[in-house]
Design a binder for these strands. Structure first.
Lengths: 225, 225
DNA sequence: CTTTTTTGATCGAGCGCTCGATCAGAATCG
DNA sequence: CGATTCTGATCGAGCGCTCGATCAAAAAAG
């Protein structure tokens, strides 16, 4: 109604990460709390039964309130899905960013970031798998947001790669190669989540981390690209 | 009725790749032809609208016959999905296997197989994306079959890797490493399909192939593992 | 060859049911 | 008591699948 800012995007969006989902509820804190409850319940149900087989009634029941109340805090089932995807991405990003802020840039940072990311992909493999399977069902504007989250995380890898090559004994990668390497890290983490049931027969997550780390460092040994 | 073979699995299953989906139609050739029509129509619809938003009526209409006829050739919507997944995997496998039979084992074979696989992942990116999104909706026994198809393709990579390391100047990889490398190839092809919309901004499929090939050959330069 | 019968592929209206969403009223709060 | 939040019965669009009817062509009969 009475927004003073001229354009449109002033809000605390980067703080609570979940902008502009409409609600009838006045109390903003209550909204935040209830939505967290909803996400917690829904994540579990979605992971167990998938998005389509999970009904809004189940979500409401698992959350602890009625179907009517659920629809006071979200406008649609897709809203719930978006909240879930965002929460998952937030956790992954937080854990990688934490490492990044605690270690000085260089070989060691790259190594630790890879380890942390793959570790969290292992721990959250159900959630990562879920996200890949359901992004398609999000309304366009939220699909876009989820992909942005994904790219932001990949961007963290790219950042480490950039700083690594300028601050240590590793040769410099050109721009495009950095992007490709960053995406490889991203994707291989997800691959562990996708195929854990299979990989686990052959090696532990530690061995997987060792192998992928070595492969990535191997790229630096190749000048031409 | 009067099958002479003692046990149960005598049929031409490995020839037509699509075993034991029941049908009311007597004429086996007709079944094959109609099912191919169904797959062609369904692939298009699934890629465009997804599995859930596609109705059985749409499939029937696009195929050119009635909803009733559709159900003479398949017993459920999931059957259609399985036929589609199988057809896609068959095409990928065929194209990789063709290369494999035409080039003597060695560095060159590995290089060409990677190129062929990534190329077909590019060409069929919509289909590969589709398969990943929908496998979850298959009844268990068919999900299993689809995963077997997937592993069979990965197995082709492993085979090249094994022969490569014994027949050329490349050092030998141990068993587990071969498996990991084979899966990396598999996964990175799918990654191109998943993220083509993004990768394409940064590099062509040719550059992608060059990069991934080099990365993989780089692994051979590292002894310890 | 003509007529009759049989076969089996095709058709599509309709059944049964699920599930997302609504809204009028009850409960709670301040 | 007014405002806010919660409740759950109710709605109805949409969908997978069924099944008796239809019909063209093959087979059998005359």
């Amino acid at each position: 109604m009475q927004k003073t800012s001229p354009k449109e995007k002033p809000s605390q969006q980067s703080l609570n990460r979940v902008p502009e989902i409409p609600t009838h509820i006045k109390d903003a804190n209550l909204v935040q709390q209830r939505r967290r409850q909803i996400v917690d319940a829904a994540v579990k149900l979605f992971v167990e039964n998938g998005f389509h087989k999970t009904t809004t009634r189940q979500i409401a029941r698992a959350t602890g309130f009625s179907i009517g109340s659920l629809y006071e805090y979200v406008a649609s089932k897709e809203d719930v899905l978006y909240l879930v995807c965002d929460a998952i991405h937030a956790e992954v990003e937080r854990s990688v960013a934490k490492i990044l802020s605690g270690v000085p840039m260089g070989r060691e940072a790259l190594s630790q970031v890879i380890r942390e990311y793959l570790t969290i992909c292992d721990r959250m493999s159900d959630h990562i798998l879920l996200m890949y399977q359901v992004t398609q069902f999000l309304p366009p504007q939220w699909k876009k947001k989820v992909l942005e989250n994904e790219l932001r995380i990949t961007g963290l890898f790219k950042e480490v790669l950039r700083h690594t090559t300028s601050s240590s004994d590793l040769p410099k990668l050109n721009e495009n190669t950095s992007v490709l390497v960053a995406h490889n890290i991203s994707v291989l983490g997800q691959a562990w989540a996708f195929r854990r049931w299979f990989f686990a027969r052959h090696c532990s997550i530690e061995e997987f981390i060792a192998f992928q780390t070595q492969t990535i460092f191997g790229i630096f040994s190749q000048n031409a690209i």
